[in-house]
């Protein structure tokens, strides 16, 4: 089986770097930062594969580079190194380093292949545009020009995510956190993405609401045959959703493996600490 997404030595440095940190590729850093020029190495040589229908977990302490990684893959940030290959297993495209594409092609790819859900709904939703409009945006960008059909599709997605249709024309500003998250999910699914990027989607929600959101994601993932990248602090979430998991620290991948193996037989000292501190 061919990976859907192949990430190879992906790196992101905030700051210009200096003689001390540039060549060593971060060897002399304090945590993820250069002590001389204060550049932050948010992601360092991150490599992994994401397979069709696979859910890959990303865990790691705060600041380890998880969100940066997601933003790099969603073309919201420019990588400072590395390559990303998107290899549609359907054979519709040749493998290509998508980071080398121009802005237009990147946006097309983002609109067609990716869906993203942010921890903070403010990032993912236009709070003053109706819930239906939020879901419709990518359809409009993709050339849908029939209000009736757009509403039908947006309605379907909102129904799937358990937003009452009676609230479709309301702005999500006044929705509860769980509802906003579900509108985000509906929006992320609108373009029938191949890859879903979920960054801490349940953090900050009540336990029962968390459960509903998790359920929803799991069911959608299976029903729609999506691949997903799930960033979470919560190892319980990771256990429930992810087939495999990678562990990040100071911008690097320190360990990767089957999720149950990572949780029950962690190899790296840092992973052992992470897993045991949960108990």
């Amino acid at each position: 089986m061919k990976p859907l997404l192949k990430v190879s030595r992906l790196s992101k440095r905030y700051g210009n770097g200096c003689l001390f940190c540039a060549n060593e590729n971060g060897a002399g850093l304090v945590g993820n930062q250069c002590p001389h020029c204060k550049s932050v190495f948010a992601c360092r040589d991150v490599s992994f594969d994401l397979f069709p229908d696979e859910v890959l977990g990303i865990v790691g302490e705060s600041g380890s580079g998880k969100s940066t990684l997601v933003r790099l893959l969603h073309f919201e940030e420019e990588a400072t190194g590395g390559e990303v290959f998107l290899n549609a297993s359907t054979g519709e495209e040749k493998s290509q380093n998508v980071l080398a594409l121009g802005p237009f092609a990147k946006r097309q790819l983002r609109n067609r292949k990716f869906g993203i859900v942010y921890q903070n709904p403010q990032m993912g939703l236009r709070m003053d545009v109706s819930a239906g409009g939020n879901v419709a945006e990518k359809l409009l960008a993709a050339g849908w020009r029939n209000v009736g059909l757009i509403r039908e599709r947006a309605g379907e997605l909102l129904k799937k995510t358990e937003i009452p249709l009676s609230r479709m024309d309301e702005a999500p500003r006044n929705f509860s956190g769980g509802m906003q998250q579900r509108v985000q999910i509906a929006k992320a699914l609108s373009n029938k993405p191949r890859i879903l990027l979920l960054d801490e989607v349940t953090t900050g929600l009540d336990l029962s609401v968390q459960a509903r959101v998790l359920d929803l994601i799991k069911n959608l993932q299976r029903e729609l045959k999506l691949s997903a990248l799930v960033v979470s602090h919560d190892l319980g979430v990771i256990r429930l959703l992810c087939h495999r998991t990678i562990v990040m620290r100071y911008g690097r991948v320190v360990e990767s493996g089957l999720t149950d193996q990572i949780l029950e037989d962690p190899q790296h000292p840092y992973t052992q600490l992470l897993v045991s501190s949960r108990l």
Partner: peptide
Amino acid sequence: WLFLYEDIIH
């Protein structure tokens, strides 16, 4: 387009 869509639904 979203701007126009919102006008139409409201």
